[in-house]
């Protein structure tokens, strides 16, 4: 049997297939991560009509526009407060924020830490490709020290964030890191996040061959993927303070895993007015919706 040609992919119903092919560059790591999320939507058992995906600006911010669910492509950095409101008004919905490292942790960093502190019922999935891809490869809050970017032509001199460390420190109840290569593990992590109530955070390391790879002597997307294959170590119990990444340090392992999985009271603006502590359902407006 040889290759058979097809017009449609079995996953097409999960996408707005009339918009494919997407805008991302050859070898971009966003596509596989979006596929893992799309498969998790189905496998979660939650009807597609109850999933919502919200993003900010940037390459990763384009994800919701390709998903065949209610989806909102908002302003730069503001996906989290927008999504928080959707989740509070309609607590029966499963709301995800799917965006990039610059959007979520530079311009939107304040919103992330406060959403994690409050433990808002959101699943935050962050594509980390170590640079601003859409604007052409500028330095960002996760760019490793020394790495080159169009706005760091002599090398980045700023200490980057370690995103899982930050997420754990600010209160996220589930914190994981996977890559655009570790797709089954990524999907399982997303499914776990969908089961949990409260703010979950999943970092997805992804190649950006044009914006980050090229100026940093990573030949192409394939080479960055190979680098993940060779250097990634799965260690769920790794110390959170030891999760720094530097793709260019060849002897430095990249630690992946589901690092945090804890329970904490979920953000509920009406919590202090509820008659008795509720074990299961902290859903705001739940009473109202039952009545109405």
């Amino acid at each position: 049997m040889t290759t058979l040609m097809a017009e449609r992919h079995p996953s097409d119903p999960l996408f707005r297939a009339d918009r494919l092919p997407h805008i991302w560059c050859p070898g971009c790591g966003i596509g596989p991560a979006m596929h893992a999320y799309a498969q998790a939507l189905v496998e979660s058992g939650i009807p597609l009509d109850r999933h919502v995906c919200v993003s900010g600006i940037g390459c990763s911010g384009r994800v919701p526009g390709y998903l065949n669910i209610d989806s909102y492509h908002t302003t730069h950095g503001r996906a989290i407060p927008f999504a928080m409101a959707v989740a509070l008004v309609r607590p029966q919905l499963e709301v995800a924020v799917f965006s990039g490292d610059g959007d979520l942790f530079a311009i939107g960093g304040n919103h992330f830490i406060h959403a994690a502190r409050r433990n808002v019922d959101l699943n935050v999935i962050c594509i980390n490709n170590f640079n601003y891809g859409m604007t052409g490869g500028q330095v960002g809050p996760t760019t490793p020290m020394g790495a080159r970017a169009t706005t760091a032509p002599y090398g980045n001199y700023e200490q980057p964030f370690s995103l899982p460390y930050l997420a754990a420190a600010t209160g996220a109840v589930f914190v994981a890191r996977w890559t655009s290569l570790h797709l089954r593990q990524l999907k399982q992590a997303i499914l776990r996040a969908m089961k949990k109530r409260g703010l979950t955070f999943i970092e997805v390391l992804a190649p950006c061959p044009v914006g980050f790879g090229r100026p940093n002597e990573i030949g192409d997307a394939m080479e960055e993927m190979m680098l993940y294959r060779e250097r990634c170590v799965v260690d769920h119990g790794a110390p959170l303070a030891a999760l720094d990444i530097d793709l260019r340090q060849r002897d430095h392992p990249i630690v992946l895993g589901n690092f945090v999985d804890i329970e904490r009271p979920v953000f509920d603006p009406l919590a202090m007015r509820r008659p008795a502590p509720e074990v299961e359902d902290h859903a705001p407006l739940a009473r109202k919706e039952q009545e109405g």
Binding site: T74, G77, P81, F82, A85, V86, L88, V89, R90, H114
Partner: peptide, 14 residues
């Protein structure tokens, strides 16, 4: 910034 984003989000949810 968040306040305004939140009311837009609340409104799209009805």
């Amino acid at each position: 910034l968040a306040s305004m984003a939140a009311i837009v989000g609340a409104s799209v949810a009805g």
